[in-house]
Amino acid sequence: MSAVYSVDVRITAPVNDTEVTDRVADAIRNLFPEADPDHREGELVAEVHTMEGFSEELHRAEILDTARSVFFDSLSGETFAFDLKKQAAFEGRVNFAVGDPSELGDIHVEVTVREPDAESYIDYVAPPTEDGRPVDQG
């Protein structure tokens, strides 16, 4: 795809007293390899400008439809947000957190799309599928 995307991705994750900060940072980096989390008062915060690594994991795990549903359900203007289970992320897997947050808290991701628009970016990160395979939109 030749489109240029301008996005701001803010990733936050609580770090509890019983957790090792580096392990939570690893969980974030496993799904967002570009992230360099900063420790701030009980949480880690990272900002990146791409979801390439995350998109690759969605493709590998074959959960594009689930991701699209989660993204579009939270879409408000040009922003969408979602939560991820920390333990799964630490293992390098995407597991969307739905319902009550886990005891240790979840990784929260907020994506603001500046160019071209949120719907196009969602289609890029998690393309529509047919029979479980991404549909070529080109």
Rank of each mutant, 00 (worst) to 15 (best):
P101H: 13
G53W: 00
D123T: 11
A13T: 09
E130N: 14
E78I: 00
K85G: 14
I28P: 00
M1F: 06
A27M: 11
H59I: 03
H39V: 12
Y124E: 12
L31D: 01
E78L: 01
D131C: 09
G132N: 07
F71D: 06
G105I: 02
D106S: 15
E52W: 09
D8M: 12
M51P: 04
S102V: 10
H59K: 11
T21P: 11
D106N: 15
N30E: 10
S55V: 01
I107M: 08
D36S: 13
A61P: 02
Y5K: 02
V7R: 01
V70Y: 02
T50Y: 03
D100C: 10
L64T: 05
P134L: 06
Q137E: 12
E130D: 15
R23N: 13
D36F: 04
I63Y: 01
A126H: 03
T21A: 15
S55E: 07
S55Y: 10
A97T: 14
I107A: 08
D131I: 00
T79R: 10
G92P: 02
L104Q: 06
A81R: 04
M51S: 05
M51H: 03
V15C: 08
I11N: 01
G53Y: 01
D8E: 13
T66R: 15
D83G: 13
E34K: 07
E52Y: 10
A35D: 01
R10G: 00
D22V: 15
T50W: 06
V48R: 01
D22E: 13
D73A: 15
A13Q: 03
G105A: 06
I63K: 12
V125H: 02
R29S: 07
E34Y: 04
D38V: 13
A46R: 05
N95W: 15
V24D: 01
Y121V: 00
D26Y: 01
T129D: 09
L64M: 08
R23G: 00
V20D: 09
D100V: 10
F82E: 07
F32S: 03
V20C: 07
S69P: 00
E115A: 12
R93I: 03
T129N: 09
I28F: 04
T12A: 06
G53P: 08
V9E: 02
V4Q: 04
T79S: 09
I122Q: 07
R60A: 14
N30C: 07
F96S: 03
T129Y: 10
E78Q: 14
E130S: 15
N30A: 10
T21V: 15
E115M: 03
V4S: 07
F72T: 13
A118G: 10
G99W: 11
S102I: 07
T79H: 02
I11H: 03
H49P: 00
E130Y: 11
E52R: 05
F32A: 04
V4M: 06
G77K: 04
A46D: 04
T66H: 13
V7G: 01
M1Q: 10
F32E: 03
F80A: 07
D131N: 12
M51L: 13
D100N: 14
G132L: 02
E52I: 02
E52T: 05
V4D: 08
D117I: 01
G105T: 02
F72D: 08
E56T: 04
A35L: 02
E52M: 04
L31I: 11
Y124P: 00
A46N: 07
A67R: 05
T129K: 04
V111T: 08
E62H: 11
G138Y: 12
E78H: 05
Q137C: 06
D106V: 09
R40L: 14
D73C: 09
G53S: 07
N16E: 11
